[in-house]
């Protein structure tokens, strides 16, 4: 399965979904879908390297925790992430993100994301052996 992301419909908020060959790759793509709520990730020029780490008792909560960690870094550093590398090992997630400071004139970010919800939260293997990771984020 080729890695990709998409949004899915939620009446008030936005669903983010990532696909990948492994859970880690699906998590990377879900985080790119998160960036895409604000801005087209392809338009970013990410230079700043940011290290992230999180843990959770199960895979679904790890996804919500991971997306919350990305949202937190976006908020306090005022950056947008254009690329991620995620490793997951026994409930622990280590990641590197590459980000660019928000430039309101160039990015025109649409809306800030408040947090990941547990709504439509799923991490599961697909019939083709690839992985899907998704949840609704509150905007």
């Amino acid at each position: 399965m080729s890695a990709r992301w998409e949004h899915f419909e939620h009446s008030a908020d936005v669903g983010v979904r990532g696909y990948g060959a492994t859970p880690a790759e699906a998590f990377e793509q879900a985080a790119l879908a998160l960036t895409a709520v604000l801005v087209d990730p392809a338009t970013l020029v990410p230079r700043e390297r940011i290290v992230l780490h999180c843990t959770a008792p199960d895979r679904e909560l790890l996804l919500a925790t991971w997306l919350d960690a990305v949202i937190y870094e976006m908020a306090v550093r005022r950056v947008l992430f254009g690329r991620f590398e995620v490793n997951i090992d026994d409930g622990e997630l280590d990641a590197t993100g590459w980000a660019e400071p928000v430039d309101r004139e160039r990015h025109h970010p649409a809306v800030e994301v408040k947090g990941a919800t547990l709504t439509a939260l799923e991490v599961r293997e697909q019939p083709d052996g690839g992985w899907l990771a998704q949840c609704v984020v509150d905007v």
Partner: peptide, 17 residues
Amino acid sequence: RGLGHQIGTEFLKRMAI
């Protein structure tokens, strides 16, 4: 603002666990 958003997300997960 960010304070409320962070409190909401942290406690949502803790309550679920």
